[in-house]
């Protein structure tokens, strides 16, 4: 360690000579070069990070509303019944595989009124199951229970099931899908 103290300190020249007495113009030039280097690196760094940050945070700015998905013929959802339905997520990526599939519960109140519930429990997102006999949705994770209209019946969920917007087009039922339903939709 002490040996280095005697070296010239010019970083990598390996000359091992003692530090030469500095002359003023050389010092000034060295100071300028250093600042120039720092500045150039700084600019280069910013230029490099713009695409990197943009690439990584891009998904957070993706918006996806009004993507209407066809759930099927109205006749597959008989009046007074709640049926399981699946669809392919409209914003899927080529590498999604099975995970692009999405499930939901369709409750047909009468021929023109529906409720389409997200499969995800309003507590922490586990898949709820419909029990026709007791007309309840039950969640396997922490025991959330919902009535057939999606309202909270028991357990930790802070609210009822999330619902998709739906519309009837001709003889087909469409929902506005495209994201995992979340709390911000409660407002």
């Amino acid at each position: 360690m002490t040996a280095q103290g005697n070296q010239c300190g010019c970083g990598g020249c390996g000359c091992g000579a003692t530090k030469p007495p500095s002359s003023a113009p050389a010092d000034a030039r060295r100071g300028f070069m250093f600042k120039l280097g720092a500045g150039l690196l700084g600019i280069g760094g910013v230029l490099t990070s713009i695409p990197i940050v943009g690439y990584l945070v891009g998904p957070a700015t993706k918006r996806s509303s009004n993507l209407w998905v066809d759930l099927g013929e109205l006749s597959t959802f008989p009046s007074g019944q709640t049926r399981f339905a699946t669809f392919l997520n409209p914003i899927r990526q080529p590498t999604d595989g099975d995970s692009a599939k999405t499930a939901c519960w369709v409750r047909c109140i009468d021929a023109t009124h529906f409720q389409v519930f997200a499969i995800n429990c309003a507590h922490l997102g586990c898949p709820v199951r419909w029990f026709e006999q007791s007309k309840l949705f039950m969640c396997p994770c922490h025991g959330g229970v919902y009535y057939q209209d999606g309202s909270r019946a028991a357990g930790p969920p802070p609210r009822g099931l999330f619902e998709y917007a739906w519309k009837v087009q001709g003889t087909r039922l469409l929902i506005d899908a495209g994201r995992l339903p979340g709390l911000e939709e409660s407002t």
């Binding site: 700015t61 999604d96 997102g125 995992l180």
Partner: peptide, 25 residues
């Protein structure tokens, strides 16, 4: 779902975590 509960930026945090609006590729 936990990320979603973060006030104000929950939606963004979730999307950052998942790399999009859904769990996928």
């Amino acid at each position: 779902a936990i990320a979603d509960r973060i006030p104000l930026v929950g939606d963004q945090v979730r999307a950052l975590l998942l790399g999009g609006p859904i769990i996928g590729g």
